[in-house]
């Protein structure tokens, strides 16, 4: 409410300085202060994964992170990852396989799956399911998502 502080954050490669209240979550900051609405809020409890962003290269739940905690740090959101093209292969495969329905969970799923593939080049289906088990998708039943991540990993291995 009061005691607003200045923070400087690098978001998707661009420096932002903003005056924020200490209680503002990173999710609200990204969405409302910066207008990057690709990050979604689903449960506000860190359970559903819709708000996942990257903080200094690692995925975090932006609903459980305060904006002031990110002062001096680097954030990447779905918009940044889309523009850089680094997950364009996965996005294309998600499109082709219909690995999304309403699309509300999708940015969080893409960021989480991208981190999995950074850690494990060729995860098996069980590993993919396990890694995504903190991301709620209410529409698809998950199978198409698992298929799409598996195919992305395979294509990356094949050097496509």
């Amino acid at each position: 409410m009061s005691n607003k502080t200045d923070i400087s954050v690098n978001v998707n490669g661009r420096e932002y300085t903003r005056h924020v209240s200490p209680r503002v979550s990173l999710a609200d900051f990204i969405r409302h202060d910066l207008g990057l609405t690709g990050t979604h809020v689903g449960c506000e409890h860190g359970v559903c994964g819709a708000c996942v962003v990257k903080l200094d290269g690692k995925i975090v739940r932006s609903c459980l992170t305060l904006a002031v905690q990110t002062d001096g740090h680097a954030i990447e959101t779905i918009e940044g990852l889309s523009e850089s093209g680094e997950i364009s292969d996965m996005q294309e495969i998600f499109h082709k396989r219909n690995a999304l329905q309403c699309g509300y969970c999708t940015p969080g799923i893409l960021l989480t799956a991208a981190e999995l593939l950074e850690k494990t080049a060729t995860p098996d289906r069980e590993e993919i399911r396990e890694f995504l088990s903190g991301n709620l998708c209410r529409c698809t039943g998950y199978e198409a998502i698992i298929d799409a991540v598996e195919e992305t990993a395979r294509e990356r291995q094949d050097g496509k």
Partner: peptide
């Protein structure tokens, strides 16, 4: 056939009411 209207959603450019 894939759904053309998933592309915006996949790029974080969907528009939900809170957006």
């Amino acid at each position: 056939v894939p759904r053309a209207n998933t592309l915006a959603l996949l790029n974080g450019r969907g528009q939900f009411v809170d957006d």
